[in-house]
Design a binder for these strands. Structure first.
Length: 482
RNA sequence: GGCGCGUUCGUCUAGUGGCCCAGGACGCUGGCCUCUCACGCCGGAAACACGGGUUCGACUCCCGUACGCGCUACCA
């Protein structure tokens, strides 16, 4: 390969890494990996007001969690201020830029008038008409000035890797500001300067930047720099077809981690949001995605984020994880729910493994293990009301449970085969269907009407626990029990 | 308002002029399995925004309309 691919992800640490940013990062990462190139990270922290080191750390944590490792040192945009300023100076020297002494309030007034008249606004180039003497005079008076870019006539066209050829007539652009009157360079300047210095070959970013691109290309040209290739990927929308934002609830990668999603799931799902391998595959491993990834596979239209499918996919990954690995991932959620102790789980490895095996078929998120399986760790405190009512109406339930208690306390071989035999024989003796014992027993042991197979569950819980739970719930079946 | 981008089942998408009376997945739904719930399996409903061209033939190409989104700052 002639030149090495270099791409970057450039988040602004003004918030956590969200789904949209993660997808952009992922696409850049995949592109770099696929082509054996480099994936760089740049933190756009020039807005000191809204940026924070804590948020930067959080973004890095999320990227690492997703498995998106970056190459080389992180570039902090705030540290490149002088480079950005130098770009403005150069442009001023070459005549590509010019000083604008117009006071901001005059400008905003002009805009107000022009916008109400024509609906659009472009800087009227008042200061471009200034001659050298005018400029010197103003400089001596120390009138603050901004530096504007002098947009040439004509048009800018470029071949977007996702959208194809795109043309902007320069009459649509106005002489945008490069350097604010306080001396701070504007975003477009920072991006171009940084991307150039970082040797970026492909800019892969959200298509909300499409309209910024001609301005940036103009800057590259004015500096005589090589222009990178651009790939503008479509946005991710919430269910209301609006750009995904906090309004849609949990959108940060961090929030999905806490909600019990696996990083593998998120990567797979995000990869498929706006990109397709071209065939019918849905579950793809990291290496498979890297191998298949290509820009022509990126779609042009925005994608609605569908959490239902994410959940389904997470279930697939939960089920495919090797058991010990799955247990490791579940453990923190059990601790969080207070079901196991921080240092000592208080339960054997074997018990925990069986817990995970029995539940993994019926969960989608890691949090579900704690939510639907708490009875593995402690006696249920509440019981499904409608189920209790239902079984209580059958006046024999109390007697049935008592009989079962007797039979189970005499059971010596506490294995699921034996337990099943005991329960079924009890039913036969009592002249009821097996279900008449099974369902109330399930309720008694779990507090719920749904659980893993009852006999297996009894075997895992152990005789002592089963008998205890059976005993302490006997009163439940008394008709007028509170 | 102007400019830019987009428009295939509810959602993510396959489709690059005939293989498409449109395929897959999630969701929904009927059934099977079954001690419940899941998992799994089998089946079903469900889409080419609209109107003009081009062509022997258009989901695919061109034009227009409608709708949606983005940009339009001395924000990033």
């Amino acid at each position: 390969m002639a030149s090495t691919v270099r791409v970057r992800f450039a988040p602004s640490p003004t918030g956590a890494l969200h789904i949209g940013g993660a997808r952009t990062a992922l696409f850049n990462w995949l592109f770099a990996r696929h082509h054996g190139g480099r994936f760089l990270l740049r933190i756009e922290d020039t807005d000191a007001e809204r940026s924070s080191p804590e948020l930067t750390d959080q973004i890095l944590r999320s990227l690492r969690w997703l498995g998106l490792k970056w190459d080389e040192d992180i570039v902090f945009q705030s540290g490149r201020r002088s480079d950005h300023a130098r770009l403005c100076e150069t442009l001023l020297e070459t005549g590509a830029g010019y000083r604008c002494f117009c006071p901001p309030d005059v400008l905003s007034e002009k805009r107000r008038i022009q916008e109400s008249a024509t609906g659009g606004y472009r800087y009227d180039r008042t200061c471009l008409k200034l001659d050298e003497a005018d400029i010197q005079k103003r400089l001596q008076q120390e009138i603050p000035f901004a530096v504007r870019f002098r947009v040439p006539e004509g048009e800018t066209a470029f071949e977007d890797l996702v959208h194809g050829r795109i043309v902007f007539r320069h009459t649509e652009l106005d002489d945008f500001v490069l350097l604010r009157s306080d001396g701070s360079p504007v975003y477009q300047v920072a991006v171009v300067s940084d991307d150039h210095d970082m040797g970026i070959t492909h800019v892969i970013r959200g298509d909300d930047h499409l309209s910024n691109t001609p301005k940036q290309i103009l800057l590259y040209r004015a500096m005589g720099w090589d222009i990178p290739r651009f790939a503008h990927v479509p946005m991710i929308w919430g269910p209301d077809r609006k750009r995904l934002s906090k309004r849609h609830g949990a959108v940060s990668v961090e929030a999905y981690r806490e909600a019990g999603y696996l990083p593998e799931t998120l990567v797979n799902f995000l990869a498929l949001l706006g990109w397709s391998p071209g065939d019918d595959r849905e579950i793809l491993s990291f290496p498979e995605i890297v191998r298949s990834f290509s820009i022509p596979g990126i779609s042009k239209n925005p994608a609605v984020f569908d959490e239902k499918k994410l959940e389904w996919m997470n279930g697939q990954y939960v089920r495919s994880l090797p058991l010990p690995e799955l247990l490791d991932r579940v453990l923190p959620f059990l601790r969080n729910a207070g079901l196991v102790q921080e240092d000592d789980p208080g339960f054997s490895e074997e018990f925990l493994l069986r817990f995970v095996v029995m539940l993994r078929e019926r969960v989608r998120r890691l949090t579900d293990f704690a939510e639907t399986g708490a009875y593995f760790f402690r006696d249920p405190e509440s019981f499904d009301e409608t189920a209790v009512e239902k079984f209580r109406r059958n006046l024999r339930t109390g007697a049935l449970m008592e009989a079962l208690l007797q039979n189970l306390s005499r059971t010596e071989d506490w294995t699921d085969e034996t337990l099943e035999a005991v329960v079924r024989e009890s039913a036969a003796t009592l002249d009821v269907r097996a279900g008449d014992l099974i369902h109330p027993l399930r309720l008694v042991l779990t507090g719920q009407t749904a659980s893993p197979g009852l006999f297996e569950l009894m075997a895992v819980l152990g005789q002592e626990t089963v008998l205890r739970r059976l005993k302490r719930t006997l009163a439940l079946w008394t008709p007028n029990h509170p």
